[in-house]
Write a protein that binds this DNA or RNA. Sequence first.
DNA 1: ACTGGCACTCCCCGGTCCCGAGTGCCAAAC
DNA 2: GTTTGGCACTCGGGACCGGGGAGTGCCAGT
Lengths: 339, 339
Amino acid sequence: MALDDRKLDVLRAIVEDYVATQEPVGSKALVERHALGVSPATVRNDMAVLEEEGYIRQPHTSAGRVPTDAGYRLFVDRLSKIKPLSPAERRAIERFLLGAVDLDDVVHRTVRLLAQLTRQVAVVQYPSLTRSSVRHLELVPLSTTRLMLVMITDTGRVEQRQVDIPGTLPADDVLELRRLLNSKLAGERLANTPPLVQALVDEATEELRPAMTTLATVLLETLADRHDERLMLAGTANLTRGGVLDFAGSLRPVLEALEEEVILLKLIGEQSDSPRVRIGDENEFVDLRATSVVTAGYGPGGQIVGGLGVLGPTRMDYPGTIATVRAVARYVGDVLAQS
Amino acid sequence: MALDDRKLDVLRAIVEDYVATQEPVGSKALVERHALGVSPATVRNDMAVLEEEGYIRQPHTSAGRVPTDAGYRLFVDRLSKIKPLSPAERRAIERFLLGAVDLDDVVHRTVRLLAQLTRQVAVVQYPSLTRSSVRHLELVPLSTTRLMLVMITDTGRVEQRQVDIPGTLPADDVLELRRLLNSKLAGERLANTPPLVQALVDEATEELRPAMTTLATVLLETLADRHDERLMLAGTANLTRGGVLDFAGSLRPVLEALEEEVILLKLIGEQSDSPRVRIGDENEFVDLRATSVVTAGYGPGGQIVGGLGVLGPTRMDYPGTIATVRAVARYVGDVLAQS
DNA sequence: ACTGGCACTCCCCGGTCCCGAGTGCCAAAC
DNA sequence: GTTTGGCACTCGGGACCGGGGAGTGCCAGT
């Protein structure tokens, strides 16, 4: 059976009421709170259809209805308009992010801002190294056989590694190594550097070859392993709002999933510009089947360099959350662009 | 009334049993599990005294006894010997920390290790800037009017700031600025730098003065404001072990306190070498009155540069936790020393 | 000083009952 | 055909109750 407009209205009303009250909503309460223009009995018939179609369900016989994941999905896709943020909210975001002094500070402020605005758990990924470009490479001699390699990217990330050089290295050679590294790599996207790094090794003079080889190894490792990706979390306390009841039984698995960076990176990685919503069991991680995740990519000038998002109970304010995530992602992109 | 040895034994037994079982312990169970050599009735008399003295209490009439905060305190101070860690544990710590590639990685691994070993919430403070020394300062030109100032410390911290220079700055001047900064500041403890920075400004030539002044401002800000201190958290999921029951009613306030970096910094800041234990309401933060905190300072070669610790229910395994915190703090100090 | 005995207290657990919200269905009305 | 009012029914949740049991405090005896 196709769902006519009124049934969709009923579904929307159920979602909105349930999100607001956190209690199963009955037919009578529905007609009282919303101007549906029909009687409770009619609403009951509609509800029966909606239930048959899998959009709502009863926690137990003779309780009100609660949206299913499919119901939320339909609501998000077709029934809700993204609320524009109020000018006050926009100003708050802007003011909060503009004071940041470095990338850590940007990420830190962003994640707290997101958690505060959405009243949920927020996650922000640092700009991915492979999607950044080299701005500058620096070599700092620590001893005659040891260097610190510092890489600064255009997204503000600074990576440092200690490198043990085979044999000793005169100061002039260090300068020459630095010059070579920067002339070849500065401005390049890190994803493109492996062949360039190899070329540096191949072209190095006899004296510099061993040191350059070591440096190359370290550089490539930096890109290859999991150090590429970092992230920051905030707002876990928000999981306990509205009683622990939100999370069927226990929020333990959710907290555990939040500690697994691999999981979080999968959630917020590979994003597009506009927010993506995963509802309940659309999520690939079983521990998060009671939660919904709203994520978006961010980056300077439309180019995506990282992801961010929030996580909360499936019973969440989707329009508001989506609007906030989108707005914050954009502002973060702007902040990164101007630095 | 003074507490004779047997009463202290009884208290110790109560603490140990309660920590193990998480249930109020009665006189009968006590004589069964511990070789006290007396009858339950005698133990009951002792318990009555211990209760009168405020070391234990009954949740309700005719339940077993539970240690009070004062009871735990006495236990920690006089009744428990620090368990030495097993060789296997020591090896695990060592292996886990040795693979770290940079400071972020050290802190990250440390906090996860602590959380895992103690099965509680772990906090690790980054080495405090004011207690570190400058290893190197680098200036990277971003444009003709903008520099990035990168400061590398001996504890591995790397701080970066963007600096807008009044007027344009030739490449040679940048090199000269860098030379000046490093010659004056390299090797100095950051706490001692403010007068040195001022001297740099005073001694600067006409051309360099404006740029140097700006750089000085940024440097001093970096030390002054809260950016000095950072920290990392792990193991919040452990708060939910043993049911939510641990935390009288709700763990909400605890999670909220954990989000307040100011609170955490106060907890783990200003540490001495040996672990410090705060039990229940000894804690200055009301939100943490149901928790105990075990903290220690760490740093290379006995010099303290930061703090770390764990937080859990007052009902925790103090000897084990103290031993772990101490061992981890030492190993972190070693790792920092050799880098 | 320690112990065994004993009465007492009070939590916990299971069962029962009642209430109310909400439903499904049906026949009547529009 | 759709909507509506009526009505019987279901079931969760809270209140109430009563027995069992763990644990205690106290006392008299050794």
